[in-house]
Design a protein around this nucleic acid. Structure first.
Length: 596
RNA sequence: GGUCUCAUAGCUCAACUGGAUAGAGCAACUGCCUUCUAAGCAGUAGGUUUCAGGUUCGAGUCCUGAUGGGAUCACCA
């Protein structure tokens, strides 16, 4: 049962009966009535005055009267200027709730038979994950869950950038100054240990540049000529040539990083169905360059480099293959695009990458389109904005990055302190308490990063950003714990609220009606969030629902209801809210506790 | 400089894709725990939606321009 759709079709009929006009069903739109007016749905009549040949207000009156008479859903109406506010009958709300409570797969849309691949995380293996990666990981995981709920078959993949000059820098520094330390010997987590040497490299490298500049070398030239960089580049050449020593060190250090990443991924609750490694894929794409040349989409310059001219699409000329025949970034990406299609045969392919690469993906997708790839129309760059600190942009060289592991740990400590302060751990066994702290820490963090529209850049203040009150993850988690407590009590009292006959219910309290209304919006929100790739829609929804439930909770009493019928109805309503909170937060990758 | 993008309460964010008097949270202030978890609820205060034009019944939202942030324009990834 869908109240909105039924209302729309009644309005459609009203236009025919009253004005002999066939309205376009797509054009007829309802919006929620603003709080200061009576009613639930509002129909705007301004655009239809032309059709009725009467003023917007009179049109509203006529439509309202018609609906009240001809639709069982409409129990009353009022018209303010060109706004027709419709009040919905209690019986309709109850019927709607019965349908929701009885829905087996609530929140799961019907399978649409389409496959989608979501690529996210895609870290470099030269340093640990930081705050920016967290936004990426949470977004990628959440969008994947949302698309599953929207009916897609989803695969999550991670394209690890495990080769290149950056990892050689760490390797070189380790070779020079590492003294053979390992994660085991130093007690440092693998990715952090490798990151330490990346920083070490940069320190010495900058010193060399300064020395050269002091000798009168231009800064730009000094950056290239510094011996350390030369050595790192030489190491990269050795790696590509398969030098056993270099490859062995590369394998060792990468394995440290992987075990570090694995720990972090597990901690923050993200996972992947498949890993791709650039060391395997960096040679791909050259045959596509050939193909493009044959098709006349690419052209070769005198020095042998290959380009595409995108000026007719408002872009520039773009290099796709170097003059020495080696790949550039976009060459590989063409190759991996084909590879993914070969592996998954997906209808949609989403890459979660920061918006500093907007231009790159615009070009890449355009090329794949020109090459006539069957999957080209399904490509989508989920571009997200940077995470700024109060001090400005995060810069790894300036040591202003917020490390992911550190942040999570600090959050756990904050959660623990706060929870203990409130005296919520009494009677809780230590394991449950520990799980709770982690749940709250990650709930706060994930909600904070996901509630903002992905496209927008956002501000993160480590000192005060993460709160446990108000519009936060823990607020939603708390609401769930509250309801769980109600349901435990119902259980203890042996109440079988699932058997309640909702049709026997006589009336609906305004706050109950609001809760049912919120519940009824859920499916649409899931669909919308899937279309827009926007976890923020789900986050906002979960908050609104929790907020509405808390109002209900304080305004009416569940266990002191007038009669058992009403009591059981309210328990059932609460259970439906808990279920929806659980489902919606799971789409955000957030867990909710039974007590807190 | 070219292209793209953003600008909403002191702060962090919304605004259902053009609808009513622009909403939440934080911070400030006032109430509510002898009834189901006060990490809650109710309320007060806080706005020329950066600025100037335009489009129409109607603009935070669309178009033009300006100002100010950011990104990008490598034979880096």
């Amino acid at each position: 049962m869908n109240i909105e759709q039924e209302l729309i079709s009644s309005i459609h009929k009203a236009f025919t009966d009253l004005y002999q006009h066939t309205a376009d069903l797509q054009e007829l739109k309802l919006q929620p009535t603003r709080k200061e007016f009576e009613g639930t749905y509002t129909f705007v009549t301004f655009p239809y005055a032309r059709i009725s040949k009467k003023g917007p207000e009179q049109t509203g009156q006529e439509l309202g009267a018609y609906l009240q008479q001809n639709s069982a859903l409409v129990s009353g109406f009022n018209v303010v200027k060109g706004f027709l506010n419709l009040e919905i009958a209690d019986a309709a709300w109850l019927q709607l709730f019965a349908a929701i409570a009885g829905e087996d797969s609530w929140g799961q849309l019907a399978a649409n038979g389409k496959k989608v691949v979501v690529e996210y995380s895609s870290p470099n293996t030269n340093k640990p994950l930081h705050l920016g990666h967290l936004r990426n990981n949470f977004l990628g995981y959440s969008v994947s869950q949302i698309l599953k709920a929207a009916g897609y078959e989803v695969s999550m993949v991670n394209l690890v950038n495990d080769r290149g000059i950056h990892i050689c820098k760490s390797m070189l520094a380790y070779q020079k100054w590492g003294g053979g330390e390992t994660p085991e010997s130093s007690g440092i987590k693998g990715d952090h240990l490798v990151g330490k040497y990346y920083v070490e490299f940069d320190k010495h490298y900058r010193r060399q540049i300064e020395e050269l500049v002091a000798q009168g070398v231009e800064k730009e030239e000094a950056k290239i000529k510094a011996p350390l960089l030369q050595e790192a580049q030489e190491m990269l050449r050795q790696w590509e040539a398969g030098d056993p020593q270099v490859v062995s060190l590369w394998k060792t250090m990468n394995s440290w990083v992987y075990s570090g990443f694995e720990q972090t991924y597990q901690k923050i609750g993200v996972a992947f169905d498949k890993f791709y490694h650039e060391s395997d894929t960096y040679l791909l794409g050259k045959d596509i360059v050939e193909e493009g040349l044959e098709k006349g989409i690419f052209f070769k310059k005198d020095n042998g480099s290959v380009w595409i001219d995108l000026s007719s699409d408002g872009l520039d000329e773009k290099l796709v293959l170097r003059s020495d025949g080696t790949s550039v970034y976009i060459t590989q990406d063409m190759g991996t695009a084909d590879l993914k299609y070969k592996d998954f045969g997906m209808d949609k392919s989403i890459v979660v990458v920061g918006n500093e690469q907007d231009y790159h993906f615009k070009v890449l997708f355009l090329i794949l389109e020109k090459l006539g790839r069957p999957y080209a129309p399904g490509n989508y760059h989920l571009s997200y904005g940077m995470v700024d600190l109060p001090s400005g942009k995060m810069k790894s060289r300036e040591g202003t990055v917020v490390d992911a592991d550190d942040l999570v740990q600090e959050m756990e400590e904050t959660a623990e302190n706060y929870t203990r302060e409130l005296g919520k751990v009494e009677g809780m066994d230590p394991d449950e308490a520990k799980r709770l702290f982690t749940m709250l820490a990650l709930g706060a963090l994930k909600y904070y990063l996901l509630r903002v529209d992905p496209k927008k850049r956002m501000m993160f203040d480590p000192q005060e950003s993460i709160d446990f009150q108000g519009n936060t993850g823990p607020f939603i988690q708390y609401t769930h714990a509250r309801i769980s407590s109600l349901l435990r009590r119902a259980e203890e009292m042996g109440i079988n609220y699932k058997a309640v006959e909702i049709s026997k219910q006589k009336s609906v309290h305004p706050t109950e009606r609001e809760v049912i209304f919120q519940l009824s919006q859920y499916t649409d929100k899931v669909r919308l969030a899937g279309e827009e790739y926007a976890p923020s829609i789900i986050a906002q929804y979960a908050y609104d629902l929790a907020k509405e439930f808390n109002r209900f909770y304080t305004e009416v009493s569940v266990f002191n209801a007038d009669d058992e019928q009403l009591r059981d109805f309210r328990i059932a309503l609460s259970a439906a809210v808990a279920r929806t909170i659980r489902h919606s937060t799971s789409l955000l990758g957030i867990e909710v506790p039974e007590r807190m």
